[in-house]
């Protein structure tokens, strides 16, 4: 019986189907909002679903210089890691799989899709992919620093209260902390950390101002240049699921609380909140700024978000 529940969790509810659908709709919403901000009508909300299925129908070409197995398995590995992460993120008290330490596992499982993209790009053997990979790596290095500081800050803040001083890495403890003391965003010490995380979401998802790795114009979609057909569809799906996971992670870390107790209402609330976060962080930045250069991304992320995160870490540290 447990296996059945496990299977359901993996394949349907927080796993593949649910996060894929919500992810695609969220990225559709993002494209629509960006269009509306540029006074355009913009594609229908389910446009990414159309894109996904059209790509499924296209022919998949494997170039001669590519090493075939890595080339074809990279997107699947990325998808696996993303679905595994989606099992971790609690939705207001309900968590599909909750081991004690979630933040570090999430942090690392979220690097697997990025590494899968890199391996896929490397395996395709194209020079554009080579450049795209080194840019993707620079992006990872630049956002890993502030992201880690933010997670440690939250762990420290919750740990001090619940875990008798030692840091906690478990998301369920963070949710129960917010259930008692109100959402984390209301705690003034953590507002800089929230701002930092808001800035990290676009680069983690790879949306326009920071998508130096998949720049359509400079390096023809970077690592994805040789992909067509089903593998490309899975990569676009990864992109959408990552958007959903990062925003719902933000909601869990900063905006969650008791929730209404009924699962369905909680889920809708979580989706609405992550939709708001998508609009705030990803769409506005995408609509008003142009793409940064490679070294500007590194300089930007090692100054502003890191300073914000360090500020809140110090505040939390002092405010023991």
């Amino acid at each position: 019986m447990v296996v059945l529940k496990y299977l359901f969790n993996v394949l349907v509810f927080p796993g593949l189907l649910f996060s894929a659908l919500v992810g695609l709709i969220l990225s559709g919403l993002d494209r629509k909002i960006v269009a509306r901000m540029q006074k355009r009508i913009g594609p229908p909300l389910i446009q990414p679903i159309y894109d996904f299925f059209k790509l499924l129908g296209k022919e998949t070409i494997v170039p001669r210089a590519a090493s075939r197995r890595t080339f074809l398995y990279a997107p699947v590995i990325g998808l696996l890691a993303l679905v595994t992460v989606s099992l971790f993120i609690p939705i207001f008290k309900y968590t599909a799989v909750s081991t004690v330490a979630d933040i570090i596992v999430i942090l690392y499982l979220l690097t697997i899709p990025a590494v899968a993209l890199i391996m896929g790009g490397a395996a395709s053997g194209s020079p554009y992919a080579g450049v795209g990979i080194s840019r993707e790596m620079v992006a990872i290095i630049s956002y890993e620093l502030p992201l880690v500081i933010v997670l440690l800050t939250i762990g420290k803040q919750v740990g001090m209260v619940l875990n008798k001083g030692a840091i906690t890495f478990s998301l369920s403890q963070i949710v129960s902390y917010q259930a008692e003391y109100g959402p984390m965003i209301t705690n003034w010490r953590l507002i800089p950390a929230a701002l930092a995380l808001l800035l990290i979401i676009p680069i983690k998802v790879g949306s326009v101002p920071f998508d130096i790795a998949e720049a359509e114009i400079e390096i023809c979609e970077g690592p994805l240049v040789e992909y067509s057909g089903a593998p490309l569809a899975i990569f676009k799906l990864n992109h959408a699921i990552k958007m959903f996971i990062m925003t719902s992670l933000f909601v869990t870390l900063f905006l969650s609380g008791k929730g209404t107790g009924i699962l369905i209402v909680d889920i809708i609330l979580q989706i609405l909140l992550s939709a708001v976060i998508v609009v705030i962080s990803i769409s506005t930045l995408k609509a008003i700024t142009a793409r940064l250069k490679v070294e500007q991304v590194l300089k930007f992320f090692w100054t502003y978000p890191t300073a914000l995160a360090l500020l809140s870490l110090i505040l939390v540290w002092i405010g023991r």
Partner: peptide, 21 residues
């Protein structure tokens, strides 16, 4: 551009021929 907005019909300019229809 916003005036004619082909994106409302799903058109998207891609960077690589492998993605094109």
């Amino acid at each position: 551009t916003p005036r004619y907005d082909a994106e409302r019909m799903g058109f998207k300019l891609t960077g690589s021929p492998r993605h094109a229809d």
